[in-house]
Amino acid sequence: MTEEPRRLPTPVIVVHQVTKTYGMGDTEVHALAGVSLAIQRGDFVAIMGASGSGKSTLMNILGCLDLPSTGRYLLDGVDVQGLDETQLAEVRNRKIGFIFQSFNLIPRTSAIANVELPMVYAGVKKAERRERALLAMESVGLAKRLNHTPAELSGGQQQRVAVARAIATNPAMILADEPTGNLDSAASADVLDLFEALNAEGRTVVLITHENEVADRAKRVIRLRDGRILEDVRNQPLAPTAITA
């Protein structure tokens, strides 16, 4: 592993001069135009910015769903550019809990099976993964909705299933792309409480939001504009105990 010199502890996320360009020629879009940032373990970061400013693009790169056009992304000190497809799948599986704006649950499949899914690919034994999925469903308050399919759940409940799926594998890092975008204020307060609790346990949380009330609960707020970091503000200090990946 590459040691980051003279900075302890090692940041879990290091993004260095990352750009992302979509399309070619006339249709070329610079979704990210050179972003550099570091995120410490145990931080709770909100990313804000106008629509089209590149938030989702950045988040997808952080979540190893997409690769940068240029620049470097080091996760736990490892450059993801050097990882092959299988290793990337393993990183997504073990280190990251990704929560999508549009839930992204598998249709016609029970909530509990959706929560178990990452553990299926991690090779966790059936009994153990059922147990861990149950715990995750309990922690999001959906212990009574185990066998409902996504279509049989409300938007807020679906989002909580998505959260349960993200935390069931005990990832050190939670990445959430507008997790409260589709929720009313009560439901979004529930989800935010969950994130706060997870962060209090020492997990790193990065979320995208348009709402100031959501951003206010984060320890650090990063604003993007036109694919660049506009400002980076710390509201609360970092907790001393952090969970290592």
Binding site: G63, L65, E85, T86, A89, E90, R92, N93, R94, F98, F100, N104, L105, I106, P107, L117, P118, Y121, A122, R165
Partner: peptide, 16 residues
């Protein structure tokens, strides 16, 4: 396709 994307996002490998 979306289901495939979801599975891959949560850690499914090509072989899976």
């Amino acid at each position: 396709t979306r289901e495939i994307g979801i599975r891959k996002a949560v850690g499914a490998k090509k072989g899976d």
